[in-house]
């Protein structure tokens, strides 16, 4: 189980990295943490001609915070993000991270790499989607910012073009009186989720829902958002939670595989959607009472 031969380039700046990507086109491949790519290379599922190692790019491992949110650089490790206090402003990512692999894989795996990889069962793309975050892409042609919903196209497929590098992911700060929650069902701890769910809600002063995003992963080719626009303005209640459960189940067409049938996934999707919604509301209410 050894990789096919590849050439190696090690850019020290983003400019060098995008130059390399521009030069090699589809033959080039970025390696970030290598926690997904390493296995694919070893199994010879992929055989890029050139590996572009972005791990030594100066400054790419920084987390920046401003009024609008957090910018997580390309080589920020999952374990560093988990520890970083700036990420308290965007709690959903912190909620999701412990579910991503293991202590040892988080030591190396990156936030951006997971999102660029776009595994349909992965936690972080779902978290970014539900946070209404975005991806910052850079190429020789310039920089563009693509909303998570547009970035995540399908199984292992994103809106990133061959010559682009994900230089950062952007996580908006949670507004006041908001709450979020993440939960998932996996067979063993550290496994990819059979169903993962995330919710982010905000309430107004009287406690009505002013914004709500509930999403699911593991149930299709990419993480999805449940259409909840009609619930804005509602007061959180059991009825609303039931509605979320229902909508979750209706908005997916999952597959059957060795671990779970489509029907079982659909069933779990409802349960977990409701679970994260309830938890997010609870937190928003607690947060509001503390404000």
């Amino acid at each position: 189980m050894k990789p096919a031969p590849f050439a190696y380039v090690r850019p020290l700046s983003i400019a060098e990295a995008v130059a390399a990507l521009g030069e090699h086109g589809s033959a080039g491949r970025i390696i970030a943490g290598g926690q997904s790519l390493g296995a694919m290379l070893n199994m010879r599922l992929v055989a890029p001609k050139v590996l572009v190692d972005i791990n030594r790019i100066a400054g790419a491992n920084s987390i920046e915070k401003d009024r609008t949110g957090i910018r997580v650089g390309a080589t920020v490790r999952q374990s560093d993000a988990l520890r970083h206090t700036d990420l308290n402003a965007t709690p959903l990512i912190k909620e999701a991270l412990p579910h991503v692999g293991h202590f040892q894989t988080r030591n190396r795996g990156t936030i951006c790499g997971s999102i660029a990889h776009a595994d349909p069962s992965a936690e972080l793309p779902l978290a970014l989607l539900v946070s209404d975050g975005a991806v910052e892409l850079r190429s020789k042609r310039g920089t563009r910012i693509v909303a998570a919903d547009d970035f995540l196209v399908s199984t292992l497929t994103t809106a990133r073009r061959e010559d682009e590098m994900v230089v950062a992911t952007l996580w908006p700060s949670a507004p006041a009186r908001s709450g979020c929650a993440f939960d998932e069902f996996a067979i063993r701890g550290g496994d990819y989720a059979i169903v993962a769910a995330a919710a982010q809600v905000s309430l107004d002063a009287p406690g009505n829902i002013t914004s709500i995003r509930v999403g699911l992963a593991g149930v299709g080719e990419r993480p999805i958002l449940i259409d909840t626009s009609q619930l804005i303005g509602d007061k959180p209640s059991d009825g609303v939670a039931e509605e979320i459960m229902d909508r979750a189940r209706r908005s997916i067409e999952p597959i059957s595989d060795m671990q779970a049938s489509a029907e079982y996934r659909t069933h779990l999707a409802g349960i977990f959607a409701r679970r994260v919604f309830d938890a997010a509301i609870r937190r928003a209410q607690e947060g509001a009472s503390r404000v």
Binding site: M1, I31, S79, N107, R108
Partner: peptide, 27 residues
């Protein structure tokens, strides 16, 4: 396993526990 799951290859790189099967020597 050479796919990151068994952990037998774990070493410390600059103090962090990392899979040595999914990182290349050159890195």
């Amino acid at each position: 396993c050479e796919h990151g799951i068994c952990g037998a290859c774990t070493v410390l790189i600059d103090g962090r526990a990392v899979r040595a099967c999914m990182i290349f020597a050159i890195q």
